[in-house]
Design a protein around this nucleic acid. Structure first.
Length: 477
DNA sequence: TTTTGAGTTGTTCGA
DNA sequence: GTCGAACAACTCAAA
């Protein structure tokens, strides 16, 4: 038997040492720490990490292992088998982890907890990943919120997030050899074609710290106006770091609040409310696990989705003939990332103008986004489709041309990702089909050859979407 | 229980 | 070019 008790710390979406409540508690117990990560694709079912996420995850786990001086045991397989066996084999006294909201994890973790407890092992779980514990926020009558504003203004008001915890000092790590673990074989690289140098991401806790520092220095002050502009880098770019828990929302919140001077007041509030949307998505997924696949509003079960694989493929490939949509979809394919404003435009186009089921889009994003997050992705797609928690006005249908003119006024963003249109004048950069023949010719663009003609007509497809929505309103449908 | 006010992100039309 | 109004009906939150 070991001289000191052994505590397993099970890392999941909290790949950091600082402000990690599970790690902090385990270290504080005086036990020898045995850190573990498990690639559990089997129990994840349909929602294991997508292709792009795998690239990130692999790097981030490696970075975490380095911070832990190589002590991280990395396994591949069913956590419900690996963890109890490991706990038995090493004679663990306790197992620590931070809770997640993905339905498959909630179910799995509950079963593992019971199993371990029956074996006499102490389980210690924490809320490591959200400012407001999704299970704790509730209306006065005890039921969960379905609308953002009251959730944020009321539900979260009296719950004050914790101060970030320091990284534990003098971690007593288990250094014994462990031939059974340490499956270092990385998952297949997901996006073999994408150029790592191009996007400049650095997965891991240090990378997250750098991105946050950069945002505080140069991004925050203009965040309120710039966040909607894909042509200038006005967003925080924290999303993948937050998703994998390389930085906690508590750390981000605290850092941002420190900057809440007079000038940055609005920007800070705006940014914190964006962080709160992440909280709201987690709240929704926690309370409505069917969010990933069922319309939250049941009447949408009879929405007349079309199923057209040609249209879906054109959308996926960035070949719809609408530059703003195509630029976004190509940015996604090339870099594993898409600017938030463009996500809404591209998503709205698929769901409203093409009448394709939101689940088709959600699946594509899940697979292609480095920051794919089940709560954010599911909640946001339902929001765009109008079947989500809050009743979006039925008439909110984005026009990719007006959105382009408004948020990419010089066409810089389009030109970056749709280079075949690069020499087109600003006036036509968002609507090449309206350009006179001689303009197209001098820009060297043959519509239908170099760049597609629009696959649907905007006004007609908008009317069609409005009709589809009003068909839902009819009683007894 | 009933009632009232409100609901992230938009577009179009006509004055 | 700018600006305000219209665009369904519904659900949720809270009084």
């Amino acid at each position: 038997m070991p001289q000191t008790p052994i505590a397993i710390v099970w890392f999941r979406q909290d790949l950091r040492l600082a402000d990690n409540p599970a790690l902090y508690a385990a270290a504080g117990s005086g036990a020898t720490i045995l850190p573990v990560f498990i690639h559990d694709d089997e129990e994840a079912g349909d929602w294991g990490p997508g292709s792009a996420s795998r690239w990130w995850l692999r790097k981030s786990v490696t970075a975490l292992n380095e911070s832990l001086q190589g002590a991280l045991r990395i396994y591949r397989g069913k956590a419900s088998e690996i963890l109890p066996k490991l706990a038995r084999d090493v004679g663990a006294d306790a197992v620590y982890w931070n809770r997640c909201v993905e339905p498959w994890r909630v179910l799995r973790d509950r079963a593992i907890k019971e199993q371990l407890q029956q074996a006499g092992i102490r389980i210690h779980t924490s809320n490591g990943s959200y400012l407001y514990d999704p299970a704790e926020v509730a209306k006065p009558d005890g039921t969960p919120y379905r609308v953002f504003t009251p959730f944020y203004r009321r539900g979260c008001k009296d719950l004050s997030p914790r101060q970030p915890l320091p990284a534990p000092k003098n971690l007593r790590l288990d250094n014994s050899s462990h031939p059974d673990g340490h499956d270092e074989k990385p998952p297949l690289p997901a996006f073999p074609w994408f150029d790592e140098a191009e996007h400049g991401w650095q997965p891991g806790e240090q990378g997250a710290r750098d991105v946050l520092a950069q945002f505080l220095d140069t991004g925050l002050e203009r965040y309120a106006e710039a966040r909607d502009r894909p042509d200038i880098d006005g967003v925080s770019r924290l999303s993948p770091h937050l998703h994998f828990g390389e930085v906690s929302p508590h750390q981000v919140r605290e850092a941002v609040l420190e900057r809440k001077g007079k000038q940055q007041h609005d920007a800070v509030d705006k940014f914190l409310s964006e962080l709160a949307w992440r909280e709201f998505s987690a709240h929704l997924l926690y309370h409505w696990p069917e969010l990933t696949h069922d319309n939250l509003q049941k009447k949408f079960d009879r929405f007349p989705w079309q199923q057209d694989e040609n249209l879906q493929q054109a959308w996926q490939q960035g070949a719809t003939g609408y530059p703003m949509v195509d630029a976004g979809m190509r940015q996604l394919w090339r870099t594993g990332y898409m600017h938030n404003r463009v996500r809404m435009i591209a998503a709205s186009f698929l769901v409203k103008n093409l009448l394709q089921d939101w689940r088709v889009g959600a699946r594509w994003f899940w697979n292609s986004l480095l920051d794919a997050d089940l709560a954010n992705n599911s909640a946001s797609w339902q929001w765009v489709a109008g079947c989500g928690a809050d009743a979006a006005p039925y008439f909110r249908i984005y026009n990719p041309v007006s959105q382009g003119r408004k948020f990419d006024p010089n066409g810089d963003y389009v030109r970056r990702y749709v280079p075949e249109l690069a020499t087109l004048p600003d006036k036509y950069i968002h609507c090449p089909w309206e350009a006179p023949a001689h303009v197209l010719e001098s820009a060297g663009v043959k519509l239908g050859e170099d760049y597609p003609k629009p696959i649907v007509e905007l006004a007609a497809s908008r009317t069609r979407a409005l009709d589809a929505f009003s068909s839902l309103a009819k009683k007894a449908g």
